[in-house]
Simulated assay, not measured.
Amino acid sequence: MTLAIETAVRGVAEVLRDRVAPTLDDGYAIEAVRLSAMMLTMMANAADDAVVLRVAENGQLRALFGEAAGIVDDATLSARLEEAARSSDPGLRISELDRETDRLRRLLVALQIQLEAQADEQATILGQRIWRMLRDIEASRAPRR
C-alpha cells in the first residue's frame, strides 16, 4: 500500500480526535485538539481535490475562450483566446496547474474588460455566464469535511 499525503493527514486527525482529545481534562485543550483535527481533515480533502479542481477550472476557461474568440471585436484578443482555447495543462503538479490557472485567469480579466467595452447583447450574455462560472468554480473549492 502506498501512503498518500491525504491518508497520512487524515490518520493524524483521527488520532487527535479519537485518542488524544478524550484523554484531556482541560476544556480549552480538548477544543484546540478537536479544531486541529478538523483543520487537518479539511487539509487532507483539499490535497485530495487539488488536481481535479484545477484541471476542471482550466478546462472550463478554455471552453469559454473558444466561444468568446468569435464574439470579441478585438482581433488581437480573439487570437489570444483561440490560442488559449487550444492549450493544455503543462502537467499535473499543483504548482504547474496553479501557474496555468493564473495565466488563464489573467486572460479572463482581459476578456471581461473587452466585453464590458463592447456592451452588445452577446457580450452582456457572455459576461453574465462568466460571473456564473466564477461563482460555481469558487463554490466547488469550498472546504469539505
Rank of each mutant, 00 (worst) to 15 (best):
R54M: 01
E116I: 02
D98R: 08
L24Q: 11
R103G: 08
A50Q: 10
S87W: 04
R99M: 05
L40V: 05
E67I: 04
S78C: 07
D49G: 00
V15H: 11
A50R: 08
A13H: 08
G11K: 01
L53Q: 14
Q128H: 12
A44I: 08
I113Q: 13
E31M: 10
R80D: 15
L107R: 13
Q112Y: 01
L92T: 08
L104A: 04
I130P: 00
M39Y: 11
A50P: 05
L40C: 03
Q112K: 13
P22E: 10
Q118D: 02
S87F: 07
A139L: 12
R34D: 10
L40I: 10
P22H: 08
E14W: 08
E121F: 01
G70F: 03
A79V: 08
D136L: 07
D73Q: 12
G27K: 10
R17P: 00
V33R: 07
R86H: 09
M39S: 10
P90L: 06
G66P: 03
R141S: 05
L81W: 12
V9I: 15
E100D: 13
M43N: 14
V52T: 11
P90H: 08
A56F: 03
V52G: 12
A68W: 02
A117S: 15
V109P: 03
E96H: 04
T2M: 07
A119E: 14
A63W: 10
A47C: 03
E116C: 00
V9L: 15
R10K: 11
T23K: 09
A63T: 13
E67M: 03
S87I: 04
D26Y: 04
V12A: 14
V72W: 00
R17M: 09
I30C: 03
L40S: 08
S78L: 08
Q112N: 10
I94C: 02
T7E: 15
M38N: 14
G11H: 07
V12T: 15
R17T: 00
L35H: 14
I130G: 01
D98N: 14
T76N: 12
Q122M: 05
D89I: 05
R17G: 05
R93W: 07
D136H: 11
E82K: 15
L64N: 03
L97T: 06
D49W: 03
A13Q: 07
G66D: 06
R99V: 01
I71M: 09
A13V: 03
R129I: 02
A85D: 10
L115H: 04
